[in-house]
Design a protein around this nucleic acid. Structure first.
Lengths: 231, 231
DNA sequence: CGGGAGCTTGAGGAGGATCAAATCATGTGG
DNA sequence: CCACATGATTTGATCCTCCTCAAGCTCCCG
């Protein structure tokens, strides 16, 4: 988590026009010749688990579109502890603050192997009028996600929080989902790693989830829903 | 909290050009003749404690600039409970989602007597290019506030959370600050009203705060800082 | 004066934190 | 290929915080 930003592997220059998830991302509204305006390189990177997109305080020169994987946004507390304040997944934008501020406000670290597009802030600035609608949508999503984290993941008993986390980790339709380290679960739910471990173990024993590979789980949605809502 | 949106008193039509806090708000960048574009009325309202600006699901026709007072944004949980996910104060904008969505996502309720400007979404839409920079700033602030709520108010012991709440309630320079009902403190900090009451009482006894009038407190910033950061 | 809402306080118990030890997984060097 | 070191996860035992339920209190308003 310290010096592994170097670990980001350069994959190539992105060709946004052919992007497979373009309707999900910032450039959804752009037309053919709008891409001519982009003369700074947009890079296509992939990152292993634990690699950081940026650190708090670092000069904010880029925004990042998440194409695949999962990121945590974490912030530090006066007492030295830290807390995960949001999760970002496919289609989300990390580092939006680059548009209005000079430095990043979180550490953005990959929780699952990830692919991202790195877009210079100047490209966004140049395209501003064309991107307006999408930018609004992305900001809106950022706020929604953050509220979701407080509402679902910082409220209720540890059992409820873990259950809701399992439900948020992947869409209902997904066959299985990947969980992350117990420390991260703790920092996200506001509980200790030990409690996180105990609750996950209890869910396994009770059949609410099944571990089909290390940290890959099949979910019993009915059971989890029940736990998430229990009085 | 139920049907008291009616309680909002109409104060008059706003004259944004002479607004005393214009540099804080959405229209900060507008020039003299830009105001000609606004032909829908911008209303100036004040609301008593407990009055709602809007309810979740309600058609989102306006955004609101908070000129004075304090609002809570609350959302409802699957189990029927609710949780305050953010606070809004002077200069903040409530109901930003009106720009990109059709209905509001929270209940916005006054926690202190409040003055707001009610701006039709069409006015914002019409002024879009001029407002772009301010809109970005406001969205950014919304995200920051929300992250602040998880980081400061949903992390650590009840003592720490209450101490941090006192510190957030007003700038350091403020002589005193107004606290709100114990139920709201609970819903904001993720603790029970009883615990909230007990901790506030303990702070009073210990001299960390002094109640100079019902729910008006003078703060001992040093003591509160210490509690907020205790290991 | 009586009622109600919100706040305070108390006693008891449950849930989660803490500290410590055991187990498991991974990677390294012999 | 095995022995060992390292780090994460699991589990256990104990303690403390906070929740729960219940009663008393204060203040406001009819």
């Amino acid at each position: 988590m310290r010096d592994n930003e170097i670990e980001a592997a350069w994959h190539g220059l992105a060709s946004c026009e052919q992007c497979s998830i373009r309707d999900l991302v910032l450039f959804a509204d752009l037309k053919g010749d709008d891409f001519g305006i982009i003369h700074l390189p947009i890079e296509d990177l992939w990152l292993p688990v634990g690699a950081a997109l940026y650190q708090p305080g670092q000069a904010a020169g880029h925004v990042f579109t998440v194409r695949e994987g999962l990121f945590k946004l974490e912030q530090y507390l006066p007492d030295g502890n830290h807390r995960i304040v949001s999760l970002l997944g496919q289609g989300d934008v990390a580092g939006l603050e680059a548009i209005v501020a000079d430095s990043y406000e979180h550490a953005a670290v990959a929780l699952a192997p990830a692919k991202v597009c790195r877009i210079p802030r100047d490209v966004v600035a140049r395209l501003t009028p064309k991107l307006h609608r999408q930018l609004m949508k992305k900001w809106h999503e950022a706020v929604q996600r953050s509220h979701e984290c407080t509402r679902e993941l910082s409220t209720g008993s540890a059992r409820q929080r873990v259950a809701r986390l399992f439900l948020l980790l992947a869409p209902e339709s997904a066959r299985h989902c990947r969980l992350f380290g117990r420390d991260d679960i703790g920092a996200l739910l506001g509980i200790t790693p030990e409690t996180a471990s105990r609750v996950v173990a209890e869910f396994k024993r009770g059949g609410s989830v099944t571990e089909i590979a290390p940290n890959i789980f099949e979910r019993n949605l009915g059971a989890l829903d029940g736990i998430a809502a229990e009085g």
